[in-house]
Each structure stands twice: as structure tokens, then as C-alpha cells.
Write a protein that binds this DNA or RNA. Structure first.
Lengths: 338, 338
DNA sequence: ATGAAAGCGCTAACAT
DNA sequence: ATGTTAGCGCTTTCAT
């Protein structure tokens, strides 16, 4: 088992020795090259090259404080919605030459805590996260310790914490109203756990729309809790099919991945969409428009969401709370398309 | 502009002072609690809680060496193929309680270098990356400095570096053969820049398949270089449509995102798939089977790819080179489905 | 322009 | 069981 070079990594003092200067001078050519004469600078640079010296970030950080790095924690890295948000963050951070590290909590509060801690230990300036629980104490504490925190995709419940969100109540209400307008009087809502804020808000939106239409939510709404991915959609769809009544059903999915799973299952079972089952998704991901049955969905300003979160992180001013508005995109799957 | 608490973060010596013990003891309750009597441990723990002390990772790392952290650099975080790979890595790393930080190079060698350096500075044990260039010198140097390196999705050109890849020559050849079997005698290959290894290999695979069929690649193959995403597909499709001949065309896409863009454009323009244009993708991402025209694609063992890369990273033994075999999944878009 | 040296927060070896 | 201390690699005064 060949070991990658036994010898210790070169340090700044190795460089100093080889170049015949002091460590302070090496540090200067690294950080303030103009302070150093051309001749010595060249000698030092040659030594750096020869030793393949890379400064030790931990030491630098320990001395200096933190680095221009931000962290993002999303619920699911395989959900295009979150990767688009991350992309938006990167685009903003790049302007200030910050770098982004991404992690996925898988909706697990423990994993979330671990990454939060890891990021803090690594000295990030700030972190944007889609929280997996309602609890903000850890985040408040983090903020107290000088790490900038931005809540992603949910409004901040406290004035100290910044947030960038999309109005989920409004979005879900739009989706529900649309299905009601197609003549449905009962809705099935394939939702995630309500401990996740977006899920709770979207549920509230559906209930509000039902109530506004004069329907009793207890009667007209059935909420099924499923995993927030395509498998969750399959699971939900199978549950629905198991007790088919023959009457048309309207299904509202908490995100497009779930909707994808639903559509996949319905197609396999030969169920007509939107005739027998009308389906609405949420997020309007890239592929939503290109599915066998193009998917009606609630579009969110994904890229802007990330961009704005990163902007808040970089600017680091007062804790703002930004809310975007979603938009319903009607396609075939809900039976509402032209 | 409210500052997050002016006061310095609590350090281990603050804790020691408050608890009336030495720093060594605090360090012990942190790292070897059993070495410390229950009574003092409790006092220390109380002090930690009161000061909201979080150990400084940089200091720890500086002292100890590196952390159980790995980095992954992929070409495009919004491509489901890469996020599935990352998921595979996470699954393996979780077993050993390592954590993964993900970054996206956007195919930009400079960004790649920046992240490589960032990860190294942050003291990762190892990094898995999908290189954006053929050049492995930086990686070799990194490896020399004791950072484990695994090439992702391309075979290692040097024995020192581990790699986990899928046979791209074989995969592309399968796809090309399939289109030829449908009666096409000319192929359009929407490929990425050949500086990216996968693109080069897939091109080689197509050429080989053509040659094996007795066709002259110079005649029978047209390669168009496009960005590796849906926009790239749109671009490629528009270029094709601009010089329509009326004869059926076969289009092979370097990945499913490109294929999605092609299908989207063809649908908008009312072009019949697979009648007028046959389309084959690559990667077989989740949604490939659910598109308006279900997409023929080359399936890769995505999750295993990531899992194995992470396994190599964690085990850190000799530099293995693992190669998986792809599989053609025939659907409607190529005209070959039942 | 360059050098010397203190010290960032922590761990681990050693001493008690 | 607990305390003392050297030192990880770097930046940054302060001297020269």
C-alpha cells in the first residue's frame, strides 16, 4: 500500500529556510507582495514552487478569523429546486469572490446540526439553510457567535435572523383554487411532514383556499404525508389507487418530484391524466413542461431566491426578511390547459 | 446595523476559568470524557453550556492534522447525474461518520483549482472530482501533499491516482449502434468540449461504432459542440432545424439535459420524434422515462459510482481504478421501442 | 526592506 | 484525576 509521500507538508518556515529569508517575509510575499523587493520576492516564489508549498488554511484562519466562504444546507441535493437555488447563491457569491460549500440535510435535524457545526468549525462567514425543523434556537446561537445566518425558503420567525422566502401559503392556495375551478370538490394533498415549514405553509394555503370556496376542509381535504421525492409520489399514488371510487380525483403535490412519482405510477397503471386524476406539482422544475403529461405547477423564482440569500450573506447588514411571490403555470396535467 | 454580539467567541480557556479547571481537563471532557471524574465533567459541561462554547475547528485541525471530511467537485450541480453521484458518496461516507462538502466547477478549470485549494486549506482527507481538463499535474501534486484523490467518472491516466468510471466508449458505441440499427446512416452528436474526458470518450465510442458498421466517420458523423445543459440542447436543435433536409435525422446527446433541450425545441417546432428526428440521451436520469416522448438513454450506475469513490477515499489504500459498464435503455424517442 | 517574536485555540505528552 | 506546557503554521506588530 503505497503511501502518498511520507514527508510532512512544506510549511512557511520551510520556504523561508530554502529562500534564506524570515517567515515574515514569506508571509509578506504571500499577502502583500508590494512590501517586498523584487529580488527576494523571486527567490521566495522559487522556493514556494520548488516545495509545492500550499499555505495551511487552518493556521491562517486561526490567526485571522474567518475566510470568505459561505455554506448552504438544503433538504435534498437531488431536488432540482434546491440545486437551482444553490446556483443562484453561487452566482452572487462569485461577484465577491466568495466560495460556496453545499451540504444536504436529507431533512434530518441531526445531520443539519452536524453540518452547521462543521461549517462553523471551518470558519464560514455565513450559512444559508433550509431548516428541517421549526426550532431556531441553534441558529440564534450561531448568529450570536458571529456567523451570519439566512433562512432559505421560509420566513424568519425572529427579527434577528434574515430570511428569503416565497409565499407558500399564496402558492398553495393558487394551486388549490385552480383545481377547484376545474370542478373538483375534494383534494388530496401529498405533503411532506408539517415540521418542515414549507409543508405547513402549503397546507395552510390549501385549507384557506378551500374555506374561501365555502368548503369544509375536514371534508374536502385529505392530506397524505409522503417522502419529498419521486418515491413519495409513487407511494401516494398507490395509496390513492388502492381505494379508487371511480370519481375523478384531484391531487396536489408538495413538489414536482412527488408529482413525477405520481405521474409515473399513474401511467404504469394506465390511469388517465387529467381525466381520472388531475395532478398539480410545485416548483416548476425544468422538466415539468416536458413530461408525458405536461405538469401544472407553481413556479418560484428559484435563482433569485438563492441570489438574494447570498447577497444578504455577503452584505451582512441588518436582518432583512425578503418574500417573493409565486406564480401558477397551468398545463395539461390539471385539465386546465387550453 | 446591529452587530452579532461584539464579544469574542468563548475559547477553551474561558471555559476552564469558569469551571475552575485547567484547559487540559476541558480538552479531556471534550475528547476523552471517561478520563475525567463525573463531578468535574459536570462542572465543565455546565460552563460549556453557559458560554455556548463551540470548539474552534481551525485550532483543532491545526493541532491534529485533518478532519474526517471529504470534498466533491462536480461539473454541474444542477445535473441530476452528478447529484445522484454525490448522494452515493454521502451514503458511503455516512457509514464512517465522515461529512461531504460539494462544489460545482461549472467546467471551469480555474474554479476547479480554487475549490481544490479551498478543500485542501480546510484540511479535507480526500477529494473526489470530475476533472474539467485532461491535466492531472495539480492532482498529482495534491496527492503528493497527502490529500487522497479519486477521479470521478473518468479513468485515471496515471497509476498514482484512484478512479471510478463508467466505460464511456462502450456506452456511446451502444447508443450509436442502436441508432444505426434503426436504419440511420448519419448521426449528429451533440457533444460537450472534448477537453472533458467523458466527451472525448463518448466521441471515440461513436466513431468506433460507425467504423465497425463500415461507415466512414468523416461522412457519417457530425459533431456539434454545445454547452452540457438543456440550453445546449436547444441550441443544437435549432442549428439542426435551420438546415432541415426532409430526411430523418438521428441525434445522439452527450447527456439527458441536452436531450431535454432538444426534445423541448422539437416539440415547440412541431417536429415529430422519432419520425423526423430520433433522439438518444445519456445518463438515464429519473425523468427520462417520463418525458412526452420517453427518452432512450444510456444508464449508468450513478449511485454505485459515488459510493465506490467514497469507499476508495475512506479506505485510502492503493490507487485502484474501477470501471463500471453502462446499459442502453431503449424507449420511444429513438424509434426502437416496441 | 527585512527580521524577531508573540500569540490565535487547541491537543497530547508529561508531570504531579 | 488533573495541571502544565510545547507547539501545530500562520499573520502581524515592533524593531532594526
Amino acid at each position: 500500500m503505497p503511501q502518498p509521500s511520507r514527508r510532512r507538508r512544506a510549511s512557511i518556515s520551510d520556504v523561508a529556510r530554502l529562500a534564506g529569508v524570515s517567515v515574515g517575509t514569506v508571509s509578506n510575499v504571500l499577502n502583500r507582495p508590494q512590501r517586498v523587493s523584487a529580488a527576494t520576492r523571486e527567490r521566495v516564489e522559487a522556493a514556494i514552487a520548488e516545495l509545492r508549498f500550499v499555505p495551511n488554511g487552518s493556521a491562517r484562519q486561526l490567526r485571522v478569523g474567518s475566510m470568505t466562504t459561505a455554506g448552504a444546507i438544503v433538504l435534498d441535493l437531488t431536488n432540482p429546486f434546491f440545486t437551482d437555488v444553490a446556483r443562484g447563491m453561487e452566482d452572487r457569491l462569485a461577484q465577491d469572490d466568495w466560495t460556496l460549500m453545499v451540504a444536504s440535510s436529507e431533512e434530518d435535524p441531526e445531520r443539519e446540526t452536524r453540518f452547521l457545526r462543521l461549517f462553523e468549525e471551518h470558519g464560514v462567514q455565513g450559512v444559508a439553510l433550509v431548516p428541517s425543523t421549526e426550532d431556531v434556537d441553534r441558529l440564534l446561537a450561531l448568529h450570536e457567535r458571529g456567523v451570519r445566518v439566512v433562512l432559505l425558503d421560509r420566513p424568519s420567525p425572529v427579527p434577528e435572523l434574515a430570511s428569503v422566502a416565497v409565499d407558500d401559503v399564496a402558492g398553495a392556495a393558487m394551486a388549490a383554487r385552480h383545481l377547484l375551478a376545474q370542478g373538483h370538490e375534494r383534494l388530496v394533498f401529498l405533503n411532506g411532514p408539517r415540521t418542515i415549514h414549507q409543508c405547513a405553509d402549503r397546507h395552510a394555503g390549501v385549507v384557506a383556499a378551500l374555506a374561501a370556496a365555502g368548503l369544509d376542509p375536514h371534508e374536502a381535504l385529505e392530506e397524505v404525508t409522503v417522502p419529498l421525492n419521486a418515491d413519495g409520489g409513487e407511494q401516494g399514488a398507490r395509496e390513492l389507487l388502492a381505494r379508487r371510487t371511480g370519481r375523478p380525483v384531484a391531487v396536489l403535490c408538495v413538489n414536482d418530484l412527488v408529482a413525477l412519482g405520481v405521474l409515473r405510477t399513474l401511467r404504469r397503471e394506465g390511469v388517465d391524466v387529467p381525466g381520472e386524476v388531475a395532478v398539480v406539482g410545485y416548483d416548476d422544475v425544468t422538466f415539468a413542461a416536458e413530461l408525458t403529461i405536461p405538469l401544472t405547477s407553481v413556479r418560484q423564482p428559484t435563482h433569485d431566491l438563492g441570489w438574494t440569500a447570498a447577497d444578504l450573506l455577503v452584505r451582512g447588514g441588518a436582518a432583512e426578511s425578503v418574500v417573493f411571490q409565486p406564480e401558477l403555470v397551468v398545463r395539461e396535467s390539471s385539465g386546465g390547459a387550453a
